[in-house]
Design a protein around this nucleic acid. Sequence first.
DNA 1: CAAATATTTCAGTCAAGTCTGAAATATTTG
DNA 2: CAAATATTTCAGACTTGACTGAAATATTTG
Lengths: 159, 159
Amino acid sequence: MNTKRERKAYADQMGLFLEHLGLPPMAGRICGWLLVCDPPLQTAAELAEALGASRGSISTMTRQLVQFSLIERVAIPGERSRGYQVRTSGFTGVLKVQYEATVEIRKMADQGLVMLKGESPRARRRLEEFRDFYAFFEREFPLLIEKWERESARARRSK
Amino acid sequence: MNTKRERKAYADQMGLFLEHLGLPPMAGRICGWLLVCDPPLQTAAELAEALGASRGSISTMTRQLVQFSLIERVAIPGERSRGYQVRTSGFTGVLKVQYEATVEIRKMADQGLVMLKGESPRARRRLEEFRDFYAFFEREFPLLIEKWERESARARRSK
DNA sequence: CAAATATTTCAGTCAAGTCTGAAATATTTG
DNA sequence: CAAATATTTCAGACTTGACTGAAATATTTG
């Protein structure tokens, strides 16, 4: 079963990448595995076995991933346990979280400018520039998300 | 000196936000402080004092921040020590790092599709969708950066 | 060049967060 | 309902990485 080892390695690597998205290591590995495993639907027991992880961490991490909508829980007909599978549409949700973080930082920058209202224009400039940077993304982010949703919907339709 | 306490709190909070950008806590606090301190140029000793941090971590973190171009080191005429100040244009660089991460994930997804070449279309779809998501950002990211560079240059000119 | 000052480096400490494994709880099946 | 099975929870172990402080090194000044 060399295929399996190869895919496990793939899951590990992908997990590493997905960490940069704010996910704990094991959550990333689960996503990575669910992107390439066979079948695409896996039980908690299968995940634990495949990734060499404890039931406990599988339980904790799948719950988190379900909350983030990156995976979903589905009933398996005739089976006692539930199955998990990736939910690629969930990645859009991650974007929205990042968008909200952008808004927070822009607000924080504006608060700072209030705090600096007595200062010279020279001293305020750095914060103004910082604010403008995040304000730009606050404006552009929703447009981008919308564009993605339109494009991906179109791609799906033309399949 | 209530102003100072207020600004210290601001630096701490901003530092927290900037962590989501991949910066260590103290690096974030330094950036936060340098956005609101008076004067905008601070020595390592002043940073250490203001943030209640050790000289060691100030040294390590300022070096990192200089590498990331988020702050710059400048000579202070008549002073023995160097000064640090934010470099707001450096935030564009952070975007480029994020862009590169996007490219890596898209490549990884394509490698995965090679690995799954024997599988059914049904089993490949999840990874294809995942790849398409990152491919979209790989396309859009540079356009966005360019747009920002154009807009911010224009704003600067009209000052 | 010697003294004074500033900066860097690094070994050790500490804190945060993840993972495990076992016990507790919940669910399903006959 | 009892037995079997699945899932969750949680206390403790472990890992990772940040921070300190002191020693080493570099730089500046007279």
